[in-house]
Nucleic acid binder design. Sequence first.
DNA 1: GAAAAAACTTGGATCGATCCAATAAATGCG
DNA 2: CGCATTTATTGGATCGATCCAAGTTTTTTC
Lengths: 350, 350
Amino acid sequence: MTQKTPNATLLHVARAAGVSRSTVSNVFSHPSRVRAEVIKKVRAVASSLGYSGPDPRGRLLRAGKVHAVGIIPPGTWGIADSLKNPVFFQQLLGISEVCDEVGASILIIPDKKGSGGVQSALVDSFIFSRFDQLAEIESARLRRLPYVVLDADPGPDVNSVRVNARAGCHAAVRHLLDLGHRRFGIVSFLREFGPPHFHPPGRPRRPEDVGMEIDQEKLRGYADALAEEGISIDDVPMVQAHPWERDAARMILDHAPGATAILSMSAMQGIRVIEEAWLRGLVVPRDLSVVGYNDIPEAALCNPPLTTIDSMGAEKGRLAAHIVFEPGAIRRKVIETRLVLRASTARVPS
Amino acid sequence: MTQKTPNATLLHVARAAGVSRSTVSNVFSHPSRVRAEVIKKVRAVASSLGYSGPDPRGRLLRAGKVHAVGIIPPGTWGIADSLKNPVFFQQLLGISEVCDEVGASILIIPDKKGSGGVQSALVDSFIFSRFDQLAEIESARLRRLPYVVLDADPGPDVNSVRVNARAGCHAAVRHLLDLGHRRFGIVSFLREFGPPHFHPPGRPRRPEDVGMEIDQEKLRGYADALAEEGISIDDVPMVQAHPWERDAARMILDHAPGATAILSMSAMQGIRVIEEAWLRGLVVPRDLSVVGYNDIPEAALCNPPLTTIDSMGAEKGRLAAHIVFEPGAIRRKVIETRLVLRASTARVPS
DNA sequence: GAAAAAACTTGGATCGATCCAATAAATGCG
DNA sequence: CGCATTTATTGGATCGATCCAAGTTTTTTC
């Protein structure tokens, strides 16, 4: 099982078979260069010594290529956390599709607090699914390996793929406005860990106070569309909470009783709002419309199914993978979202 | 982005800084051995040459350890196929939890048709989530790396973790028998790719004609329990189909009209049976009970939620990971399943 | 059967780092 | 200040393979 005898190497086999190292190497890697009977003999000796072919470590040193792409999950998440996150998972799926095409492996690298995972990972390229900590991205640059950053655009000399969340949220709100809605409530994200927090109308809503870069874009998108109908986002009641926070839905319905539509920056909170509305006897979408963000499987299965903005995670992953597999000029891609119309939005109650 | 100049190495830095290779190596790996001012100088020279620290490839050759575990998906699946499969995914989650604890990375290796992925993967150990092709398992043995096989038990000299599907299915059928059910229908798996196939009662049902090793265990479990009430599995109508086959549910309900309970070897088919029953005006569980296998998220969300056998995928993954991370004696673990009682089973209609 | 061509083997250099024993420098101490 | 320690630095060997130019053997060809 584990090696007790110091493992056999090319050299040992060569000695035992009475040929040179190079010949043994050729037997395993370029059999056409070697006479059939020598191949046979070397193979026999090799298997009697328990040698199973070139050690990838030695080979790597010369060849250089690993045929693997490294994926760095967001922030301080572990691998398990990341896999459980539907947004990360969708991206991973997109990346895997491309890897399957070219036969590459995927290395998921937990780099908690910059433990140097990026510095020492055996990969040919990196895909950063983290929109924060730039230190690790710097490590990748230093290693001179191709890399892509998802959901952020660190500058003109870095490959990036991000989604046009602003336009997506604009379209979602436009959809609601077209249905006649004028009174809204927003469920957004907290910037740091903490309890949910309500913002009454009338105070300025600064995007930089909200969640991460991408969430700030969402808020701008909401604001753009509302402004088209003369509504200031500053007058829209807003709750900030973590996606898994159970009180956010209750809070927004408590504090925005006149709202006919709720804009949620996550799908999870959108679903929570639907559930909470149901508990209060409100019928979605008759009495209240709800729009989420991200199209996670639960969004299609809840009742009624959630209208939401598909942030095209798989497509993002595919593009990112293509970029690292086909090195060349720096590419900065922007993907457009798609509004998935389900049954949680309807014309405003008259 | 990609390297244009031949990358700087330890040697280049050493020359430029006027010290030896060893000193540069120490600066990066054992700074305590080097005088502070030398460290400073070497660091400065290194960064001016664009050298960012030891190349993991060179380091690996000496150190040997990669700090990664390789996961080989079942059969000829690609990475994307595997990730989409809930059973594989649960196992992966369990493995990741353990990896997060020890800070290891996960390499998912697509080894379509034995492309040699196992032979050349840069990992410290393998977890085979494949119950078939033993050729790849042989490659792992030859590389003398620790490895575990999931859902199979190739013998006394191979680590394995499998689930006691037989006992699990026995318990599920026992549950139905205790509710008074005596007339059953079975939805099992095909052994090879092909159209769904119906087996009328009265002909012997040989486990080896069904799906994979683990599915044969399921059939034995059904048979064990049925025998306790004097029912021969040979007299139970059975459909064989792939889990994604849409006609299987229709077929079993067509051909087993008297059945009060359906045993499905997959959760997906169980859900399909519930849907098909609904279309025919049968109320589950009042008119028909259904039991699935594997507890996938959809099982809890369908209507009514599916009673199913939880095959403990995450636990399987955790155990497997522990085995490869703590090498030692060969371990062959058997995990017990858990019957998840939901709302798709009830007392037999009187 | 000898020269030319083709097929096979080989040793040395190399990939990029780490380890180790030996040497050199700095420090401590009486 | 000189000797004994302690602390820093160094060159050579090594990890396990691959590449390449040069050497050797075998096969072709006239």
